[in-house]
Simulated scan of single mutants.
Amino acid sequence: MFIPKPPVFSYRFHALLTAFIGWLTFSGHSLASEVEHHQFFSPTLGYDYPYSIYLPDNYDAQATDAYPVVYMLHGSFNTDRDWVSRGNLQQVADRLIAAGHIPPAVFIMPGSRSWWVDGHNEPARSAFFNDLMPHVEATYRVGQERHLRGVAGYSAGGYGALNFALERPELFAAVAALSPASYVPLPPRNSTAWRHPSFINDQGRFDRELWQNLNYTNYLEEYRLRVTPRGTEDEGDLSPVPLYISAGRSDVYDAEFHARILRQAMERIQPNDVRLDLYPGGHTWKVWRASLPAALNFLFQYVGQENSPEDT
């Protein structure tokens, strides 16, 4: 029996229709949230502080309950827009919220000329705590309690996020560090830290002492004392800040090696509150995009949870 072939245009029409429906679905999904770019004058810096913000679908500035907020720090020589333009944060957050894996939340992506330290070029750490956080909490309906805040970052931003959580554990319910540039005792020679203005002294040289004084290793003992119950009047007054770490197995800065050192150091303090995920790839957005869903799922096991570490 002869069966005529369907005309070619029917296949093309079906393909176009399928693509159009997919486009509508994706467009509707991508428009469920909003990403805005703002700046405000920072007294600490003496100039405008840029930041990008992700607002979830149906964000309500008058909501009874405050939204959880996560501060997302960028890497060396990058900007506040990279998490969205290169990291797919908006799409990932939309998808996880729509699936019910994480609650509707606000993501703040600040910009910095530093490695998130009070370095030789700008007091980025002080500006974050003294200017950015108060501005955000006064401008948006976000939580001002520990259990409603998280902090995360990639590369130099992972270095900064880790330092912030260790220095100020009373402020954050959890922290995620993706390929953190938290190198011990010094950065590898191919790291941009050796030429970054944050660590270049007046003589034009890399400031080794500043690096070591500002790295996470310098915060560990005080952090341990604050979060470790000891059964005395000096007993730690806070629960630990759970830590998520990721790294690429072929990272040119040996991020896997340094991530393992970090995990070992933190597990001595909080053995049940550290997770390390390793991914194929290098020190690239391929790894950070791949690990972002796991990082956010980890963070929101604690951020926004009433049974997370106690507020202060």
Rank of each mutant, 00 (worst) to 15 (best):
A174G: 04
F298I: 03
T18I: 14
D48H: 04
A165E: 08
S198F: 05
D202H: 13
A156W: 07
F40E: 06
F199M: 05
A124I: 07
Y67M: 10
E36I: 05
H120W: 14
L210M: 15
E36V: 07
L210H: 04
E267S: 06
D273A: 11
R86Q: 13
L299A: 06
H196R: 08
A294G: 08
A177G: 09
P68Q: 09
P242Q: 01
R149F: 10
S76M: 12
V142F: 09
H147Q: 13
G143M: 08
F298P: 02
G28A: 14
G248M: 01
A93F: 07
N130G: 02
V151I: 15
R95I: 03
S246I: 08
V184A: 13
D277R: 08
Y49I: 01
H196C: 04
V69E: 11
P240G: 00
D273P: 02
I108Y: 11
V184F: 12
P309L: 00
R208Y: 09
I21R: 05
L186T: 06
W23C: 10
Y154K: 13
V274K: 00
H38S: 08
F257Q: 08
N78C: 12
R205W: 09
Y219R: 15
N78S: 15
Q91S: 15
P7R: 12
R113F: 06
P123G: 04
T139A: 05
A156G: 12
T139C: 03
V70K: 09
Y54S: 09
A127H: 07
W83Y: 09
R81S: 14
E233K: 13
R189C: 03
F41A: 05
Y183G: 03
G304S: 07
V142G: 11
L162C: 02
P280L: 02
Q212N: 07
Q91W: 14
Q301I: 05
V69Y: 11
A124N: 08
L292R: 11
R226C: 03
R275S: 11
G87L: 10
V184N: 05
P271E: 05
P187G: 08
K5N: 10
Y54I: 05
H14K: 10
P110T: 04
L186D: 12
A105P: 08
L238M: 08
G75A: 12
D65E: 15
F129D: 05
Y244W: 07
P187M: 07
F298E: 01
L17I: 06
S30C: 11
A165R: 04
L162M: 13
I97D: 13
D273G: 03
L238F: 03
N201H: 00
N213G: 13
F26Y: 15
T192S: 15
T228Q: 00
H196G: 03
D234W: 11
F77I: 08
S155V: 02
L16V: 11
A61V: 14
E34P: 06
G281C: 02
D207W: 05
T192G: 14
N88L: 09
S179W: 06
R113S: 14
T312D: 13
D57S: 15
G28K: 06
F128M: 08
A247T: 00
S246L: 05
L24Y: 07
S291Q: 03
S126V: 01
Y216M: 02
L55N: 11
P169Q: 01
L262F: 14
L31S: 14
V117E: 12
R141N: 15
S52Y: 08
A161Q: 04
S308T: 02
D311H: 01
